[in-house]
Amino acid sequence: MKRPADIQQRLLRAWYQQRSWLVLLRPLSALYCRFAMRKRQRYLDAPSASWQPPVPLIVVGNVTLGGTGKTPMVIWLVEHLRSRGLRVGVISRGYGGKPPSLPWRVQPTRDTPEQTGDEPLLIASRCQVPVVIDPDRPRAGRYLLEHAAVDVIISDDGLQHYRMGRTLELVMIDHARGLGNGRCLPEGPLREPASRLDSVDLRIRTGAPADEDGFYALRLEPAELVNMKTGEKVRPDAWRAPPRVQAVAGIGNPERFCKTLENLGFVPEIHAFADHAQYNENSFAAFDHGEPLLMTEKDAIKCAGFARENWWYLSVDARMSESFVEALHARLDRHLPPRQNPISEPE
C-alpha cells in the first residue's frame, strides 16, 4: 500500500512534469476554476463583508500547491519589520494542529507540534513574536489584537481566505517548478487561475538567482547544522563527518532540500514524507543509523522529543534584494501612522 507521501509526490510530479493524462480531469478543473473566480469576485463586489484590521495586514500566500517558501518569507518579514522598530504578530490556520481551544496563542515552551501545527510553532520559536492559530483567520486576528500590542499582522498563508481583509498580498512561487501545467485543481496545481498573479502586490520566486520579469528573488542560504540532541552548531562547510547522510523532508518540495544538501557536498539518501507529516520514535526505524540523519528545521521541531545524537537539522536564512525592500517600504509606509514610520529610515 502506498504511503500518502508517495501519492502526494506522484501527483505533484504529474502536475509539474505536465503529464498528458491529466487532461481527463479538465472538466473538474473548469468547475473548480469558476468557483475560485466567483469566490474572489464576491470579495471584490462587497469588500465591507470582510474583516479589515485597524493595522496593516500582510498576506504571504501562494496560488499553487506544493512548497513555495512561505515560512522562510514570513520569518524574514518578521525579522525585517522588527529591525525597523515595528511590533509584529502572526496569524495562521495551524494546519494539522489540534489545540485545546480556538483561537490559540502559540507558546513555544509549552506547546507541541501536534497542538499547533509545525509551521506556527517554528515561527513562534525562532522569531519570539505572538503567533495565533485559528482556521477562522479574522477571529485569529481579532484575538491577536486583543492580547498583544502589534503594529503589523502577517498572515502565514490565507491568500484565498477572502473573509480576511488585507493590506498587501505577497505571492510565493517556486522558481524551478513555476506554475506547473498552469491548470487549476485537480488537473493542475493552481488554487486560483494564473491571472490572479496580476492583482497581487509583490511576486516572489523562491530559489531564483536574481530579480527579473516582475518577480523578486528569495534566496535560501544554508546557515548552520544544529545537533538535535546536544544543540551543537556547525557551519556546513566545516562538517567533518562522512558526506553520505540520511535525509528527511516532510515539506511541500523535498527535492529542494535534497538539492541544497547536494550543493553543500553531501550525498543524501532522501526520504520524502507528506507535507506536515507527524513523526514518532519509529518513523525512521528502517533508515541506516550508522549514517548521520539530516532534516529541515520544520521537521526537526516535531522530532525534538526523541532525537538521537547523530540527528541534525539544517537552518536556512532567507535573503531578499534591496529592490524588494524598497518596493515593500513603498507599499507599506502609506498604511502606517507617521509615528510608526521608522521603516522608511535608512539602516
Rank of each mutant, 00 (worst) to 15 (best):
A124S: 13
A124C: 08
A124K: 03
A124R: 03
A124M: 11
A124E: 02
A124G: 12
S125H: 13
R126T: 14
R126M: 10
C127V: 04
C127F: 04
C127Q: 03
C127E: 00
C127G: 01
C127D: 03
Q128S: 12
Q128F: 04
Q128T: 12
Q128L: 10
Q128E: 15
V129G: 02
V129Q: 00
V129E: 00
P130A: 11
V131R: 07
V131C: 12
V131Y: 10
V131I: 13
V132F: 11
V132S: 07
I133M: 14
I133T: 10
I133A: 11
D134E: 14
D134A: 14
P135S: 02
P135R: 02
P135G: 01
D136F: 01
D136C: 07
R137L: 06
R137I: 02
R137K: 07
R137N: 01
R137G: 00
P138N: 14
P138V: 12
P138S: 13
R139L: 13
R139F: 08
R139G: 07
A140V: 06
A140M: 03
A140H: 04
A140Y: 01
A140C: 10
G141D: 13
G141P: 14
G141K: 13
G141R: 12
R142H: 15
R142T: 10
R142S: 15
R142M: 15
R142V: 14
Y143I: 05
Y143H: 15
Y143D: 07
L144W: 02
L145T: 11
L145P: 01
L145M: 15
E146L: 11
E146R: 14
E146F: 05
H147R: 11
A148G: 05
A148N: 06
A149I: 10
A149K: 13
A149P: 14
V150E: 09
V150A: 14
D151C: 07
D151V: 00
D151S: 00
V152M: 06
V152E: 04
V152N: 03
V152S: 04
V152A: 11
I153W: 05
I153C: 10
I153L: 15
I154A: 06
I154P: 00
I154H: 01
S155Y: 09
D156F: 05
D156Y: 06
D156K: 05
D157C: 11
D157F: 02
D157L: 06
D157P: 03
D157W: 01
